[in-house]
């Protein structure tokens, strides 16, 4: 399985994300934001956390319109797997690949600590290894993770079982405690918590490893 990790100016979780895939046995290719095409044979795209373009204008806004952005959109439109974590989630909402928006935390504080999440659906490659109702601990590290969506959009997410993760205790004001959401075809995941910062015990927990192992298996089965 081949994973492409995008690096924007200001990305700072790209190497951690690459490590998550590599430790799970995937081949990783690194892609620069000025590239206009993905390498051949990519199965999964990882959009990492950080502060792309200094969070200018809005978090993720400039990155979502960068040269590689169109290639990511096209890949998703063809049914490709895309995972966006933290700033990556913000970028995917700005691209329109996922609904809603990430606003300033309700507390106005930058929050950096491990949080407990409840897996909200088994029905995705990302969450199947845990199973609905399972609890996992991933770190969060964000200032703008307050997920908001209009009432109609929220109803659609809930009705279509597209909430991937919920916070056990809401840290940032997100509507319906939402920590991560899926696209309609369930192949694009955006989430604020960092599974790539929980892949081995030395990091304080390894709950994230199963997500990367499941993704690493995608190309193998295909």
């Amino acid at each position: 399985m081949k994973a492409a990790i995008i690096t924007f100016p200001g990305s700072n979780c790209d190497r951690d994300l690459a490590m998550g895939f590599e430790k799970a046995g995937a081949e990783v290719v690194r892609v620069w934001h000025k590239d206009t095409e993905l390498p051949a044979g990519v199965d999964v795209i990882g959009v990492p956390g950080g502060f792309s373009y200094g969070d200018y204008l809005r978090c993720g806004a400039i990155a979502s319109r960068s040269p590689i952005g169109q290639a990511v959109s096209d890949f998703a439109a063809k049914g490709g797997y895309v995972i966006g974590i933290c700033n990556g989630f913000q970028i995917l909402t700005e691209m329109g690949l996922l609904p809603g928006a990430l606003m300033r935390n309700a507390s106005l504080k930058y929050i950096c600590r491990p949080v407990t999440l409840k897996v909200a659906t088994s029905d995705s490659a990302y969450t199947a290894p845990y199973g609905k109702g399972a609890e996992v601990v991933f770190p969060i590290a964000h200032h703008d993770g307050n997920f908001q969506i209009d009432a109609e959009g929220l109803k659609a997410l809930q009705g279509e079982d597209r909430v991937a993760f919920r916070y056990a205790e809401n840290p940032n004001g997100s509507v319906d405690d939402i920590a991560g959401v899926l696209s309609a075809n369930r192949r694009v995941l955006g989430m604020m918590p960092h599974p790539e910062r929980a892949i081995e015990d030395a990091q304080g927990g390894a709950d994230g490893a199963a997500l990367f192992r499941a993704l690493a298996a995608i190309g193998v089965e295909a």
Binding site: L57, R58, A61, R65, P99, G100, A101, Q148, I149, D150
Partner: peptide, 9 residues
Amino acid sequence: EKLLANTVI
């Protein structure tokens, strides 16, 4: 519409 505002919010 394309960049300056996020019309979701």
